[in-house]
């Protein structure tokens, strides 16, 4: 599966495309999490049976460029607005994971005309004093594995676009995380809570019940703040339920938010 490179203003965007257009079905735009784009992950390929899936890589990640002109989350929203308008499909269904969840919620709040349905998966973007998220940037590998997965045996086995060679992988991951700090450092809250009431799209908030990075209480908070939202908690899954519990995840999102 070879991703396409498209040019968007001054930015180069690497995009994976899965499946073919379904009549009467808008495409699903998938926004990846804070560590890396997952590449042709099984869950994306299976999602593409229902509708065409587009999975772009964020500015500053991997081979996508244009990060210099993203000064804040508004610029990031406009980047994706431009991408959706470039495709000329009207509305999309929007699914965002982790940091991509923060982006998806921002897009849905600020550009409601572009989003038919919204799915947030273990999304960053809120801060709850009673349920503080740990600092993902200083965690040793072992602690990160325990926080990310219900079964830490998954560590290093998730689908990813990071290179296999350890040194190259460390460099590429550091580059990705550097971009993430723009939105997640020192606290992954850029004011999204004030904007969530402006989300029009029916929303499904999916969350791994054992997520040690974004505490599950954040899912409840998202659902309280978004006018039409419900929560689907995935048991035995951490921060990547679509990887760790692929079937349960797909079953949850197959019942679309209304």
């Amino acid at each position: 599966m070879t991703p396409a490179i498209l040019t968007l203003g001054a930015a180069r965007v690497r995009v994976w495309q899965f499946g073919a257009p379904h009549p009467g079905q808008p495409p699903l735009l998938y926004l990846h999490g804070f560590e890396a784009h997952p590449g042709p992950a099984p869950f994306l390929i299976r999602l593409a049976r229902q509708q065409e899936v587009w999975a772009p890589e964020h500015p500053g990640y991997g081979e996508s460029s244009g990060f210099e002109s993203i000064h804040d989350v508004t610029d990031l929203v406009l980047h994706y607005r431009r991408l959706i308008e470039h495709w000329g499909v009207g509305r999309v269904d929007l699914m965002g994971h982790s940091l991509g969840g923060m982006f998806a919620a921002e897009i849905a709040a600020l550009c409601p005309h572009l989003v038919r349905r919204l799915v947030l998966v273990d999304a960053y973007g809120l801060w709850l004093d009673a349920h503080p998220a740990p600092d993902p940037f200083v965690m040793p590998a072992e602690a990160l594995a325990r926080a990310k997965f219900a079964d830490p045996g998954w560590a290093g086995r998730e689908p990813t676009t990071l290179p296999e060679d350890a040194a190259a992988r460390a460099i590429a991951r550091t580059g990705n995380l550097a971009a993430a700090t723009k939105f997640m450092w020192p606290v992954a809250d850029r004011g999204l809570a004030r904007r969530l009431p402006f989300v029009h799209a029916p929303t499904l908030v999916v969350h791994g019940a054992a997520d040690g990075l974004v505490p599950p209480a954040h899912a409840e908070a998202f659902a309280r703040l978004i006018p039409a939202a419900r929560v689907a908690m995935i048991p035995n899954a951490g921060h990547l339920p679509m990887v760790e519990q692929e079937d349960a995840f797909l079953a949850a999102v197959a019942d679309p938010p209304r």
Binding site: I171, T174, L177, A180, T181, W185
Partner: peptide, 15 residues
């Protein structure tokens, strides 16, 4: 440690 080298503090070229 662990506060010495957060991602993005030093450019890749300089690292």
């Amino acid at each position: 440690d662990p506060f010495l080298a957060p991602p993005g503090y030093t450019s890749l070229k300089s690292v």
